[in-house]
Structure formats: C-alpha cells, structure tokens
C-alpha cells in the first residue's frame, strides 16, 4: 500500500484544467493547488519585505557612520541548528510517506525543539551583544542586526506554531494525502525561513 499511496501523492501543479478552466471541484488536487498558490504568494510578499530591508541596508551603510559590530560566533552554532532542523523536518516527512507514525512524530518533535533552540539561541546572542555594549540604537549596523533577527524570529515563531498544529492535528491514516500536503506546505515555509536566515546572516556579516 505505501508504494501506491506514494505514487498518487505526487501533486501535479496544473496551470489549467485542459479546457482553459482552472482545476476545480472538491477533489484533492484542486484543494492542494489553491493552498500552494496561496503559500507562494505569501512567500513572495515576505521576499519583498526583506528585499526592502536589504535596499535599506545598502543605502544606510553609505552614510559614513556605519561601523562593523561585534558578531558573536555563537551565531554560527545557531545557523547550524536551523539548517539541521530543515533536515530533521525532511526526515519526518519521509517517515510520513512510509506511514511510520512514531517516526514522523519523533522527527517533527525534534524539529520543533530545534526551532525553539534557535529562537533561544537568538535571544542569547542579543544578550551577548548587549554585554559588549551593542544596543538597538548604538549604531546602524546594530539597529539592522536587531531588527532583521527579530523579524526573522517572528516569522519563525509562526512556523513553529504551524509545526505544533501539525504535530497535534494531522496524523490520520485515512486522510493520509492531506496530512502529507500539510507537511509539505509547512516544510516549504520552514526551508524558506532557513534560506532566509542564511541570506540575512550573509547580509549582516558581509556588509
């Protein structure tokens, strides 16, 4: 059974229903289609938000008072934690595909814990920076550091809530396909946030 289920869950992302209409009706693929479009539109808004902040960083650093800040090496550990959490999420999805309920919950739980660990780590980094005398208004680089880590953290907190909903809500063997869809949507968001963090890390580190 797992093999056949696996095969049928490859979601086609049809552009139209063949006769010019969009795919519609109460069938599974149609509902999935809608959710994917919604998610990617949301992600494009988030991309535009951080693109706007990027342009702000680029303009602001030309002002002359831009000084490099103390960059705790603890951040690297944090980054690793987030990257690992993306992998554990992937493992949990594999367990879901092979219908291993315990494995799925275990690895999803690990992902949530790693997510919280990352957020805790970010707060610890803030403490470290404060210890070195870098506060929000200290200099523009510090301002952007606090602002961008905070906004990324808020988006990640949303992602963690989503994972918690998944953890408690979706395991139903009869609704296997919709469980997998929810997990795929959430993992797309989660990986997006991982990539976003790597991008922000480079942005804050390099400029």
């Amino acid at each position: 059974m797992p093999a056949s289920v696996l095969k049928s869950t490859k979601p086609p992302i049809p552009i139209d229903g063949g006769d010019g209409s969009s795919p519609r009706g109460d069938d599974f693929y149609y509902k999935e289609h809608v959710k994917w479009i919604g998610l990617w539109l949301f992600l494009s808004a988030v991309i535009m938000l951080f693109a706007a902040f990027t342009s702000a960083v680029i303009i602001r650093r030309e002002s002359g008072d831009w000084k490099p800040i103390y960059f705790p090496s603890f951040l690297l550990l944090n980054t690793m934690i987030l990257i690992i959490s993306s992998f554990t999420f992937e493992i949990s999805k594999r367990k879901l595909r092979s219908l291993q309920e315990h494995g799925y919950h275990f690895w999803l739980g690990i992902t949530v814990v790693l997510g919280f660990a990352f957020l805790g780590g970010q707060i610890y980094v803030w403490k470290l920076m404060e210890g070195q005398g870098y506060f929000l208004p200290t200099n523009p680089h510090a301002s952007f550091f606090y602002l961008l880590t905070c906004l990324h953290g808020l988006h990640l907190l949303g992602g963690i809530l989503w994972l918690v909903f998944l953890f408690f809500g979706t395991w139903q063997i009869k609704n296997f396909k919709s469980s997998l869809t929810s997990a795929r949507l959430a993992s797309t968001y989660w990986h997006f946030l991982t990539f976003l963090w790597i991008y922000l890390y480079c942005l804050l580190r390099i400029v």
């Binding site: 494009s44 706007a52 902040f53 602001r60 008072d65 929000l136 301002s143």
Partner: peptide, 29 residues
C-alpha cells in the same frame, strides 16, 4: 499590492523604531 505593500511595511517598522527606540534609520545628524 502583494508585491508593493511590503516596502511600506519595512518603512513604517523602521519609522516606529526611530520614533520610540532611538534608532537613526531616517534621522540625519
């Protein structure tokens, strides 16, 4: 709208920080 409004979001967040938390995103010397 989806693609344009985030720029204003970014701007009002920074304006809020300038107003209430002493940052200098928009305030010159």
């Amino acid at each position: 709208g989806i693609l344009a409004f985030p720029a204003l979001t970014a701007a009002v967040v920074m304006l809020f920080l300038d107003r209430h938390f002493g940052t200098s995103f928009f305030l010159p010397s």
